[in-house]
């Protein structure tokens, strides 16, 4: 039963896997660049989840071809597309800022390794 349910929700499963992989990468890898990559993977997982919620079988992208609903055309959920767009921009901003700190840290300390940074600090 469980497996069948999960199979029907494969998209969700994949997105959650991505989320967890990203989270695990962020938490376990000592390399700062890898942490940032993990962060991006995590966020990608969430975006996949969001667009999966919005998708329905047999729908079109939400650019209205004809006026009115009676044409029988159905579209994906536009709200989620908008949310994902906003989310992506926020993710990009965070990444850019994180990378700039990393560059600066590398210049000052010559390492990208969290453990070595901890040691340098104390």
């Amino acid at each position: 039963m469980l497996s069948l349910d999960l199979f029907l929700r494969l998209n969700y499963l994949a997105s959650i896997m991505l989320f967890l992989i990203g989270l695990h990468t962020m938490l376990t890898h000592a390399n700062l660049i890898k942490k940032v990559m993990g962060m991006n993977i995590m966020e990608t997982g969430i975006f996949l989840f969001l667009v999966s919620i919005g998708y329905a079988h047999g729908t079109l992208s939400p650019i209205i071809r004809q006026s009115g609903p009676e044409q029988g055309l159905i579209y994906t959920n536009p709200l989620l597309a908008a949310i994902v767009l906003t989310g992506i921009v926020i993710a990009v901003s965070t990444t850019a800022y994180a990378l700039s700190i990393i560059i600066k840290l590398y210049e000052q300390c010559g390492t990208l390794d969290v453990d070595r940074l901890e040691k340098l600090r104390s």
Binding site: D5, L6, L8, R9, Y12, I16, A56, H57
Partner: peptide, 13 residues
């Protein structure tokens, strides 16, 4: 995973 078992099916209208 628990959540997913009761989530609405993917792609439903």
């Amino acid at each position: 995973a628990l959540t997913l078992t009761e989530a609405p099916a993917f792609g439903g209208l």
